[in-house]
Every structure is written in structure tokens, then in C-alpha cells.
Amino acid sequence: MAALHRAVELADRGAGTVLPNPVVGCVLLDPDGRTVGEGWHQRAGGPHAEVVALAAAGEAARGATAVVTLEPCNHTGRTGPCRQALLDAGVTRVLVAVRDPWPTAGGGIAALRAAGVTVLDLPELAAGGDPAAVSVVSAAEEVNRVWLAAVRRGRPWVTLKAGITLDGRVAAADGTSRWITSPPSRADVHVLRAAVDTIMAGVGTVLADDPLLTVRDDAGRPSVRQPLRVVVDSTGRTPAAARVRDTGESAAGAATWIATAQEVGAGADGRVDLVGLLTELGRRDRRHVLLEGGPTLAAAALDAGLVDEMWLYVAPIALGAGPSVLQGGRVGTLTQAHRGELIDVARFGPDVRLRYRFETTSLGDPVGPPGPGVSDSMI
């Protein structure tokens, strides 16, 4: 299974550049098990991983085994079907780590088998308890988690990001928050921003901080590719001069959507229906939302079962007062607490980045009635 783990490594190179498409890696092995070609999907509209690997292999692809992280596509979009490319190249065996859940592109396994190609469907082996299959299927699912979750659920993967103090504050009592975290942490945030296709913030954050919400380099220059900026603004309070509305040179043409309750729909509290908003983003082919603030919006998304991952940049300072990373949530007792799984710990300068994974729901069912003192100032 070493070739499949290598294919997963290759797939990961496309993270952040292929959206709204999946990341995919492919390794071609000759009959003696030697690698004759490798490839990964590098950008939406570009050659798929199988086509890149086949080009690298040339004639050595005839009689080879293709090891792929995702079922070869079976349709013609901006590129032709990878199923046909494999057949034309003379590949005789294919190992598939994950089946394609998108009905439009699915069916590659069946089509290859119908054409006489031997296909090893690893999810079948994993379902039977084969430990090696379970390992590679899990790795292939993880590297492609954003796209797979978005397609299966009909809404984007949501990453909640916050820079906090040791006591969980995102600002001081007087509202100052620049800068809680260090330059290395802020640089890593821009790496994260570059890997998503949507950045979301509440109108309270826009009113308090007037953020630009763009991807920038260390010198402050905007990147060529910019995510869609979404402001969750129930009543349309975003100022006309707000920097998040800037689509000029300083924002590299980044687009902005001011999402109001009138346009998206409102929940029982009269605020923007977050489930409806994410569903609409899914319809617009948005796969990965980075939720940047504020505390009320973050708590509402967590309560609605919409947060898949939480990235916390913890600075070695304590305030003792000021707004917390989550405010106005619905959890009223410990048994209702949202429990995450620690995925990764990394250090950036004096700060520590903690990554947690959460179990989410497709419908965003709330955990209970609103708690006392819920404010709508952030949404």
C-alpha cells in the first residue's frame, strides 16, 4: 500500500488550488511494481491526476497499475473522463482508495470493469476489516475531507479560526485586539486563508475592526487568487465604505457578499439562518468556509453543528477581562458541551496553534434554547 500513501502525499499538493474540485493523486506502477509515473490535480480546469501521471509514464503506462486516491471520473467536464484516458493508455489494473460521491462523475469503477480492467475497490476491503485497506482509505478520505464533506452534505466544510489569549479572550476590555498573536501566527493564518474559497465574518467584526479579509503576503501585498468574502449581516448594517467591500487593487479584485436575513432567510431569532447560508454557498460551488469572527457568530455556528474544525492560535498572554472566543451560545449545562478531538499541535513563534475536529450535522440542529443575554451585535 506504499504507492497509495504516496498518492495521498501527491494529492495534498493540490490543497488550496483545485477548489471547487477534489484533490487527487495518482501513481503508476509497472508489472514489477516500479513507479513509472506520478501526478496530482493542480488546479481547477487543469489536467486530472491520472492524465498527468500517464503523460509522465508515456509508453510505460501500457500494462501498468494505476493507484488513485479517488475513483477515476466517468464524465466529460472541462477535461475528458479519466476512465477513458486510462483505457486508452493501456492500463490493466486500478486501485481506488475512495469512491466518487458526486453522481455526475461517479461510475468509473463500473465502467473500467466493464472494459476488462481489474479494479481493486479498497472501500470494499476496508468495510471487511482489512487493516491495510482501512489505513489507506482513511488517509485518502482525510486528505480530501473538504471536498468529500461538501459533496456528501451539500454544504461547505467550515473551519473556525481565532487568535486567543491564555484565558480565551479575543480582545481586551476596551476592544483592542491588534495584535494578540505574533507575526508568525498571522503569517500562518494567511496560508490558511489561501487554502479556502470563502472567508466569513459577522457584521459586528466588520463594524469593530473594519477588516479587509484578504490573503496577503508578509509585505502586505494581496495574492492573485482571493476567496469570496461573506459578511453575515442580518439587517444590512455593513457600511458602504467598509474595507470588506473594497474590490480594487488593495483587495486584488476579491468579491464580497453581504448576506442578509431578507436574502438568505432568518431563523427563529430573526438572524441570518446559518444553515440556509451554507446551503446556498454549497449551491454556488463553495467548498471551504473559513469562519473568522466574531464571538457570537462563532458560537451560533458551533451550536448549529456547522463547525468541522477549530484552529486556535493561543498567545502567551492573559487579560482577565474582555470578550471570549465564544459568546451567547445555547449550551446551558456541561452535558451539552461541544467536544472536539485534538488533531494537531504546532508552534509559531511564542504562540501555539491547536487544531480540533468536531462532529457536525448536515442539518445544523440546535442543541437547545438560547441562553440568557444573547446579543445580535455580531451577526
Rank of each mutant, 00 (worst) to 15 (best):
H5D: 11
R6K: 14
D12K: 12
A15I: 13
G16A: 11
P20I: 00
G25V: 03
C26L: 08
L28Q: 00
L29A: 13
D30F: 14
V36I: 14
G37A: 10
G37R: 11
W40R: 00
H41G: 10
A44Q: 14
G46M: 13
G46K: 15
H48D: 01
L54P: 03
L54G: 01
A55G: 05
R62P: 00
R62T: 04
G63A: 08
V67E: 06
V67W: 01
E71T: 14
R83T: 12
A85W: 04
L87D: 06
G90Q: 10
L95K: 14
R99F: 03
D100S: 13
L112T: 07
A114W: 13
T118A: 14
A127D: 12
A127K: 08
P131Y: 03
A132D: 10
A133W: 01
S135T: 15
V136D: 01
E141V: 12
V143C: 04
R145F: 12
R145P: 06
V146E: 15
V146T: 15
L148W: 04
A150G: 11
V151E: 14
L160C: 11
K161L: 08
T165F: 06
L166V: 10
D167P: 04
R169K: 15
V170C: 06
A171M: 13
D174K: 15
R178S: 04
I180L: 07
R186F: 11
D188K: 15
D188H: 14
A195C: 15
A195H: 15
V196C: 13
V196H: 09
M200D: 09
V203P: 12
D209H: 01
P211M: 06
V215I: 07
D217I: 15
P227Y: 07
V230F: 07
V231D: 06
D233Q: 03
T235P: 11
G236C: 14
R237I: 13
T238R: 13
A240T: 02
A241C: 13
R243L: 07
R245S: 05
A251Y: 00
A252K: 03
G253Q: 04
A255T: 04
W257N: 03
W257T: 08
A259S: 10
A261N: 02
A266W: 05
L274W: 00
L274H: 05
G276R: 10
L278C: 09
H288V: 14
L291P: 03
E292F: 01
T296I: 14
A298M: 05
D308F: 02
W311H: 15
L312K: 02
V314D: 05
V314R: 01
S324T: 06
V325R: 06
L326Q: 10
Q327R: 05
V331P: 02
V331R: 07
T333M: 11
L334N: 02
T335F: 03
H338C: 14
I343Y: 08
V345P: 00
V345S: 08
F348D: 11
G349Q: 13
D351V: 12
L354T: 11
L354F: 05
Y356F: 15
T360Y: 04
T360C: 10
T361V: 12
P369K: 09
P372G: 01
